[in-house]
Write a protein that binds this DNA or RNA. Sequence first.
RNA 1: GCAGGCGUGGCGGAACGGUAUACGCAGCGGACUUAAAAUCCGCAGGGAGCAAUCCCGUGGGGGUUCAAGUCCCCCCGCCUGCACCA
Length: 848
Amino acid sequence: MTEHRYNVKETESRWQAAWADQKVFEVTEDPSKKKFYALAMFPYPSGRLHMGHVRNYTLSDVVARYKRAMGFNVLNPMGWDAFGLPAENAAMENQTHPAKWTYQNIAVMKNQMKMMGLAIDWSRELTTCAADYYKHEQKFFLDFLKNGLAYQKEAFVNWDPVENTVLANEQVVDGRGWRSGALVERRKLKQWFLKITDFADDLLDGVRELSGWPEKVRIMQENWIGKSQGLQFRFEYDGQAVAGDTLEIYTTRPDTLFGASFVAISPDHPVSAELSANNSGVADFVTQCRAIGTSETAVETAEKIGFDTGLKVKHPFIKGATLRVFIANFVLMDYGTGAIFGCPAHDQRDLDFARKYSLNVIPVVIPDGEDPKSFAVGMEAYTGPGRLYNSDFLNGMGVDEAKAEAISRIEKAGMGEGTTLYRLRDWGVSRQRYWGCPIPIIHCDACGVVPVPENDLPITLPEDVHFSQPGNPIYNHPTWKNVDCPACGKAAQRETDTFDTFFESSWYQFRYCDPQNKERGFDKDKVAYWAPVDQYIGGVEHAVMHLLYARFFTRALKKCGYLNFDEPFTALFTQGMVTHETYKDPAGKWLYPADLKRVGDKFVHASTGEAVTVGRIEKMSKSKKNTVDPVEILETYGADAARLFILSDSPPERDLEWTESGIEGAWKYLSRLWRLVMNADFNGKGGDTEAMRRKIHKTIHDMTQDLEKFHFNKSVARLRELSNALEDFSAAKHDGATLKEGCEVLLRLMSPLIPHIAEELWQVMGHKTLLVDAKWPEADAGLLANDTVTMAIQVNGKLRATVTLPKDMAQADAEKAALGEAGVQKAMEGKPARKIIVVPNRIINVVV
RNA sequence: GCAGGCGUGGCGGAACGGUAUACGCAGCGGACUUAAAAUCCGCAGGGAGCAAUCCCGUGGGGGUUCAAGUCCCCCCGCCUGCACCA
């Protein structure tokens, strides 16, 4: 028989063309079929695909193809998260326009994606920087405004005084502008916010219900929302009062009020500001606090420092007692009220502070079993449970009871109230950047803030802008911002800020349901059919921001009448990173894997021959040069090999180490599969057909389970087992019909993973219709059950023999068979069995 | 510091509380070849033994159980996220 080599390139592009020509993956709403919406997080068009993309889209593709074979009407779209800072940076560096750069990248990356053979409905492709996309989010924003979900307030930005521009957080490195190197200033600007805090509780309750999400992500969102129950109340000043008659604080430990020994306020607190005005000592201290900064390392190492303001407040429960008021560097202005009471015995920070300034440490919660009279706090605060002590009317209560009682007393006295507080802040959406969606607002001297009339949408970006001068190009444009006020007709100015690019990615999952709609962002019925997304797949780096914003957006759109559900993504899968070994030359410079040559078990530089040191395995990144270009892999080995390696090497949620030998191995398997089918003799006779058929149907059953659970590495292992068994069966020239059944099942099961070669071999086997349209195989239940089983026999828990017995054998007979085994008798050393445990069809344990 | 995850051969990883190391990568031996590549067959946790076989083995230490990689307690190490949130 002539053996043809598998021609990957030709075959893969031929089937890609066939699927596209027949519009196999294009879908419309079909109420008669169950829908399945599979979505991969859409990419930022940075230039080229990286391996992380390839892994992501391989995973979503397997899901989409599998669900399709299962008979679902599968929506699997793709688009471009096209606004963002890198386009502006590229524009500055290369004297190009962000739009040109972006669209060029999209063209390149789309082409690369097509090489992967993805089951995508390209007719639904969307690009967020296109006006026909962002037009709709401008409308949403106007609706949010009408519904009280958007508002303006002053907020700090990072201001680069040399470049005269606002910097994004990631453009600030060690407190300096990344380009200019100038010290970044905090400047207050009026900016737009979305009221995500309105939904804080709802987002929290919702995330707890999302059973299809990883526990990890759910917890991260819960922590981000950061709900806490506590007491907000007002201290009365004793003597001098500043900025009002009372000082309001927030605490989650009202039970420890009797242990209070000081009050501390933030350096940014209005009281600090007022005192600074008249007291240079205070002003200096506040400046000192701000200089320490808020970076992680600074926070970790910074000492707790305070400044005694000389102010005093009255203890709410202890008549005549007063507490000194400090300004302290560890009190944050943007949480609670920016002021706290310190109870050093039961809070570590308060304790550190108290020890430094020699303040009282009064234990008021005594751990069970401790003697209150001798219980003392040294350098470690006690934060656990216990009984109240030294606390008047709270004495003897547990912590929770005491909290409730303290709140109740304060409320009765009219001094404050029990409060629920969230760490979550409203979402600031204004960005002082060019390459984003313009905020549809006009500022009029006479009328103030005027929303752009809906008929005037979209407000498109000016195209003739320059990036050579400092500042925001939109703001610098000579005419764009000039407009007549829609309300009074007088000269007014457009808002020159653009939306945070998380705005676009918060609703794209709905736009995919109705991407051509010119009137609205999407049709309610179409979204009702497709949404919510059944399986969302992407990187864990979006665990908080993007996913939280999208969840908020869905609720906001619901409030504005656009849809009628809360959660956009029913199930979420977060994939691991793609990693690779790192390499350095003798000078310590990073080297690309492609620049190396293997000599024996070592690497040398391919052109210079210099020795290369192999470093640790790290996430692929340009800076460490440990990247592998997907296109080279796709061109050398093809999409199927890349997909197979990605799927088989590691469980998808874990990191995947990219290795040359791994991709080679995948390629070798494809050749083997090819030979199996090409060389198969379907006219053979004999052999243990029943055993073979059992293996085939067991594989169907197990593989289906694996796919449902995202255990793709296991499913590949099972398919290789089946493949190995079929090779033996074929080599032995056994029954042709069984071999044919096996090969066909193998191809159908392989189809979601390595679709091109599976499709090709399907045709080779004589099929005239597409494999991609074939139904998922069903396991024959009759073949799943075996009539004999191999049972393990243990003596005192140690394996001593295995024995093949009829299935569901009577317990007594099984015991007898077990005791008859030579190995068992030897291990029993002639002693009688004290006990025999029989787990039917599985194991027998003899205890002597 | 808090929260979450992980720890199994040389490596990636399998294992409803029930035969630990499936499947693969790398390795070794052999076949084919002038040779290599490709391919095929075989070996392969550690130790002892000519062998049958036996002992030890899932980061460490305890425990529950007829039986523990799996469940419980303590400890060690690595990774991720959050971080002075009162």
